[in-house]
């Protein structure tokens, strides 16, 4: 049996909102040691989502037997919207489940809402992702990255990211004209989440689909900062850290034809 109780429903609500536009169906893997993990790939096979919610993400967590819960994320999102962000949220499943029980509790108002979501058999490829060497790692405020990704998408369907030891430059080249935004590395000791940190082994110049970057920044409400790891001619990794876990996106780059 699986029983995972979150202190607030907000984490799960934000996680599902962050991934449901990229992947429609996914398997939730549940185990006593790892908590809940997800690996899902979008239909175009360009964007991979990796979620990890350690048992420490939960107020209470037990999973007697490893379980795979196949979910339609649009349906899960409909149910998660029924609860308030500050409600307790508990996920419950039997050992051979055909449904997932989702319970919201508002202890102050003595309100309990229960929903049952039908599970599905989902056949999906699982990819092996080795810990990659990277040419540079950038940590910046998640909101600043989201603004650049959203703004630049209006100019072009591609966004070029150029990193040197003291700045990150985003460049868009579209039919109406061109644009660039430069963010300089800075350390803000009073408010470290406002810092822009660049750890550079080698300068990087990569191009990504603006559509996918806009899917990634849907995770912005989950964390103050995002860490981006870039390597020449390999997928980039975008990480939003959670309390006791992470939501990562791996995005395949675009290349000159």
């Amino acid at each position: 049996m699986l029983e995972g109780k979150f202190e607030t429903a907000s984490t799960m609500k934000k996680v599902i909102e962050a991934i449901k536009d990229s992947v429609k169906l996914c398997n939730l893997n549940c185990s006593q040691n790892d908590g809940i993990t997800v690996q899902a790939i979008d239909d175009s096979r360009v964007l991979l989502i990796a979620l990890k919610l350690d048992p420490s993400c939960f107020q209470e967590f037990r999973c007697d037997k490893d379980l795979v819960l196949g979910l339609d994320l649009e349906s899960l999102s409909k149910i998660l919207r029924q609860g308030n962000p500050e409600d307790y949220l508990t996920l419950i499943a039997e050992d051979s489940p055909d449904s997932l029980l989702i319970v919201f509790e508002d202890s102050k108002k003595d309100r309990i809402s229960e929903f049952s979501l039908k599970l599905m058999d989902i056949d999906s490829d699982v990819l092996t992702i080795d810990e990659m060497e990277h040419d540079c790692a950038i940590t910046l405020p998640a909101a600043a990255f989201a603004k650049v990704a959203r703004d630049m998408k209006t100019l072009s369907e591609s966004l070029q990211i150029l990193v040197t030891k003291d700045s990150v430059k985003f460049k868009a080249d579209g039919s109406i004209g061109t644009g660039s935004v430069i963010l300089r590395a800075r350390t803000n000791l009073d408010d470290t989440k406002e810092s822009i940190l660049i750890d550079l082994n080698k300068p990087v110049n990569l191009t990504f689909g603006a559509k996918y970057l806009n899917d990634i920044v849907k995770a912005t409400p989950l964390a103050d900062t995002v860490t981006i790891k870039l390597t020449d001619k390999a997928p980039a990794m975008f990480e939003y850290k959670l309390q006791g876990g992470f939501l990562r996106y791996y995005l395949a780059p675009k290349f000159e034809d």
Binding site: I41, S44, R45, V46, L47, L48, D125, V126, L127, T128, I129, S158, T207, G209, A234, P235, Y250, A252, P253, K254, F255, E256, D257
Partner: peptide, 14 residues
């Protein structure tokens, strides 16, 4: 004129 690459050319299926 840039071409989108696929994750499958970088990561192996498990």
């Amino acid at each position: 004129p840039s071409k989108q690459s696929s994750l499958m050319s970088f990561f192996g299926k498990r």
